[in-house]
Design a protein around this nucleic acid. Sequence first.
DNA 1: GCGTATAATGTTATGACATTACATCGACAT
DNA 2: ATGTCGATGTAATGTCATAACATTATACGC
Lengths: 133, 133
Amino acid sequence: MTTRNQLTRNQNLVMHALDSAAGPLSAYTILDRLRDDGFRAPLQVYRALEKLQEMGLVHRLESINAFVACAHPDCHSHDMIAFAICEKCGKVDEFSDDVVQERLGAWTARHRFKPSKTTVEIRGHCASCSADG
Amino acid sequence: MTTRNQLTRNQNLVMHALDSAAGPLSAYTILDRLRDDGFRAPLQVYRALEKLQEMGLVHRLESINAFVACAHPDCHSHDMIAFAICEKCGKVDEFSDDVVQERLGAWTARHRFKPSKTTVEIRGHCASCSADG
DNA sequence: GCGTATAATGTTATGACATTACATCGACAT
DNA sequence: ATGTCGATGTAATGTCATAACATTATACGC
Ligand SMILES: [Zn+2]
Ligand SMILES: [Zn+2]
Ligand SMILES: [Zn+2]
Ligand SMILES: [Zn+2]
């Protein structure tokens, strides 16, 4: 059983909004899309997002203040995740790299730094958007 | 000659505020510290920060919405920079890693993704803060 | 010097993102 | 029933960043 079935109503609505979206959404965009479902205040969105992030179903993109559904919600190997974010079309690719993870882990170990969250985000233009003007 | 000497008055004030600070500062904190120097509006700070970032003298920490003076303002090898940010004392370590850079570069090349800015930020507890409670 | 283009600055207002504080409700155990 | 806990509803506030417009400083060709 995935955690997916144990979501509350609000969590389900937010999750569905992110699943239905082509790319990442801001919290306030989610709020707007859920007005008809009874959403009224930002906190309703932020509270749901917080739980969904804890479950690993949603990721926050720090560099653009937005949220995106996990691309691999079933394989919860979320030690280090990297994102490539297209600044033109908004497409997000989620990937991980063992070598990067190992190198950053080596640095933190060497400096006795205890990491709690690591952000790796590459902004730029995706293949199709680079092809265009 | 470093670019440092060619700064305007506002840029100099903001640069000095960041240099004097123990850790990263938010734009509004900088604004408050420069009230006595005539600063009145956020835009004065943001405009200076923008230029300083272009010159490589200041970095923006995306994950905490703050700005920090470059730790190596003279060696402008700023292809990929990583930050370790202590969430307790605010200390920031700036470092770079050729292997990480190479791996991320390999991913973007393989996917024909043209990167414009890459963010690598590790939040957690630094050595001294881990030692404490 | 003088006109002119460009960059920097000052100021007000507004937009965008996120949290605090407090009240309410439902499920569940005692 | 009553106390606890998690989820929810709502208003207000806090925090971060930019738009729009007017003004002033600087650099440069003449
Ligand atoms: Zn994921
Ligand atoms: Zn694209
Ligand atoms: Zn630097
Ligand atoms: Zn610390």
